[in-house]
Amino acid sequence: MTTGLFVEQSLNGLQLGVMLFLVTAGLTLVFGIMDFINLAHGSLFMFGAFLAATFVKITGIFWLALILAVLATGLIGFVMEFLVLRRFYHRSHLDQVLLTFGFILVFNDITRIIWGSIPLPMPLPEILSMPVQIMPGVMYPSFRIAILVLGLIVALCLFLIIERTRLGMWIRAGASDRQMTSALGVNVGLVFTLVFAAGAALAALAGIMSGPISAVQIGMGEPILILALVVTVIGGIGSVKGALIAAIMIGMVDTFGRVMFPPAISSILIYLLMVLILAFRPRGLFPANV
């Protein structure tokens, strides 16, 4: 492998990792705090991409569309949690899986009704559609650099909120022992609604980021959901720190796997990684509950 290819693939891997982290952050916290499995998380990823593509068409300004789509998806998440999901926290995991699987079907059909079945283009702002030279002889799409930087900034902010603020302590405490957290005066229900809405917004951001790379289409959330579940399990349920490390690991292994191995092997590489990690750390890298 040449140095150029190595650098290019490293950037790709990092970018996939950052995107996976944004999707997983909400999923792992929802799972950790409320013990709730939300399969429809991938739908929020899809909504983000569709809404952004539509807002770009309406406003013509990419960054404005991005912000609007992220906020709108956050709102969808808020409504979904407030009206429906909170009634299912005390139900079994099977009920939760059935409910949120139902959401996937409904959301996919709603998307089909509104946007049709043909994949949408995600138009890029001009400055982001030119490739740039990252080292002699190696060109790299500037859009990919931009989303990498944006993703890293958001991941860093999120990390600081979780690790350094009072709200972050409540979130981590809630993920570890919800009952004790509320018996100390923390309104865990409110914290959770916030987490859910923020998680939806982050999933939307990830969806927008992947829009120009893959396509904006129905069902785009499901493969991502599978990867996000793998990241959640490897990182340790409820741990944002674990999700960050696991997401970068998966991003790198998946990207380099595709370059270095035949498809039959590269497609199972991340699952092998998961098996290996769980064999030594059955509860993932940084489990929040003990």
Binding site: R172, Q179, M180, S182, G185
Partner: peptide
Amino acid sequence: ASHKIAKRGIGFVPEGRHIFPNLSVRE
């Protein structure tokens, strides 16, 4: 709700301690 009772000024030291393992002592 539990959190409202705590807010009113009832402090709780539970059986089994229930320390948050993923938070530092200070946190």
